[in-house]
Simulated assay, not measured.
Amino acid sequence: MCLGVPMKILSRDGDTIVAEVDGVQKEASVMLLGEEVGVGDYVIVHAGFAISRLDEEYAQETLRMMKEVFAPEDMR
């Protein structure tokens, strides 16, 4: 199963961004996006590519739900 994860952009250099979620940083390409993104924006990162831009509220809610779904049974 592959999963796209909402991440916050920390830096951008050309088509390459560094994005972060829960302290984990990842490089990704923005070459597939049809819109401009910059530092502070939230994007869905999948397989090394930013594939969609999100507003912060939607990104935070998605991350909350992902944590709930993927938490071990005894942590729910």
Rank of each mutant, 00 (worst) to 15 (best):
D13Q: 12
S11F: 04
A47W: 10
E57H: 03
S29I: 10
L3I: 13
G48L: 02
M65R: 13
F49Y: 05
M1L: 09
V24M: 08
S11C: 10
D41Y: 08
L3A: 08
K26H: 08
I9T: 04
G14I: 04
F70L: 14
M31N: 14
V37N: 15
D15R: 13
M65W: 04
D22W: 05
A71L: 01
M31F: 03
E73P: 05
K26C: 09
G34P: 11
G38N: 13
P6D: 08
E73Q: 05
P72N: 10
G14W: 00
E56A: 01
V45E: 07
E20M: 04
G38W: 03
E20N: 03
A28Q: 03
G4D: 04
D41A: 11
V30W: 01
G4Y: 00
I9R: 00
R53P: 07
E27P: 05
G4Q: 04
A59S: 05
E61A: 09
M1K: 06
P6M: 06
E56S: 02
V18W: 02
D74N: 11
G4N: 01
V21D: 03
E36P: 15
A28K: 06
M1Y: 01
T62H: 03
P72K: 13
R12E: 07
L32V: 15
E57G: 04
D22M: 07
A19E: 01
S29E: 10
L33M: 10
L32E: 15
G48V: 07
S11V: 13
P6Y: 01
C2W: 13
D55Y: 00
E56C: 00
L3F: 06
S11R: 13
R12S: 02
R53N: 09
S29L: 10
E61M: 09
A59M: 00
Y42T: 03
A59P: 04
S11P: 13
V37W: 11
D74L: 11
V30D: 06
M31P: 10
D55A: 02
I9P: 00
G48H: 01
K67Q: 13
E61S: 08
E35G: 14
P72Y: 04
A50F: 00
A59K: 00
R64W: 02
I17G: 01
L3P: 13
Q25S: 10
V39Q: 09
I51K: 04
M7Q: 02
E20C: 05
E68Y: 04
A28F: 03
D13S: 14
E73H: 06
K8I: 03
G4H: 01
M65A: 09
E36F: 11
F49R: 08
V69D: 06
H46P: 10
C2P: 15
V21F: 02
G34A: 13
